[in-house]
Nucleic acid binder design. Sequence first.
DNA 1: TTCAATGCAAAGCTTTTGCATAAAG
DNA 2: CTTTATGCAAAAGCTTTGCATTGAA
Lengths: 126, 126
Amino acid sequence: MPYKTKQRHAILDYFAASPENTHTAREIIEALSISEATVFRTLTHLTDEGLLKRFTGPHGSTYQYSGCGGHHMHLKCKTCGVLVHLECSFAEEIMRHFATEHHFALDKEDTVFYGLCENCREGVRK
Amino acid sequence: MPYKTKQRHAILDYFAASPENTHTAREIIEALSISEATVFRTLTHLTDEGLLKRFTGPHGSTYQYSGCGGHHMHLKCKTCGVLVHLECSFAEEIMRHFATEHHFALDKEDTVFYGLCENCREGVRK
DNA sequence: TTCAATGCAAAGCTTTTGCATAAAG
DNA sequence: CTTTATGCAAAAGCTTTGCATTGAA
């Protein structure tokens, strides 16, 4: 089981303070003045434990608070990065469709829908 | 417009030869003996042109042939990496649900469902 | 005391860039 | 002749690892 260290707490608090935003390892390193090694190791642990969600992009990974740890899909806005938790019975419908029609067992945890949220959609129109 | 070079052709042929598989930059570099710089530059160009699809993971990117270039969602198997093109009217239903119920404009091109394909699912059971 | 976590520095990887040369249009 | 592509080597990131030390249980 993980030890309750000052660093681990600081990092988790940082994410919990803005559950709607994603943060990079670099950002944590600079904001909290914790060593690179510790930040990367802790981010990996927290992700493995399900407390954070990791998004891997072309220029490295970003992480986001996932305190709920629920088994559900997510919607992610390509512009502002906000992550919407999809607690919706329609998810089951999607699962069923892929299973019966495409012989594909969807992984809820890992599936992320990408698109534009309401706010950013309006921004585009302007 | 891009020049028709020997290297560009070789790379595109390599992908076209196995449209159902993903390949890494390193693999291309070694298999075709083309310089790193050229491979990365060409992969970027081909992805921008829509001829390849890029998947970014924790340890680098993988690319897959995408000749069809269609506007549809994809299913990707987490185990074998196979990419299934989702040409299915259910996609419209999903779009509509997210738009009306979640005010979210899904991006078909970028949305990838992750899970296990039929073959790999059977493998797990053994 | 025991075992995990930290920090520092060094190393590993993937990917990018500068620049001279070669090839395509 | 003009413009893009190539190759090499160097550099830039992001992330990981080794090792001695610190701190939690």
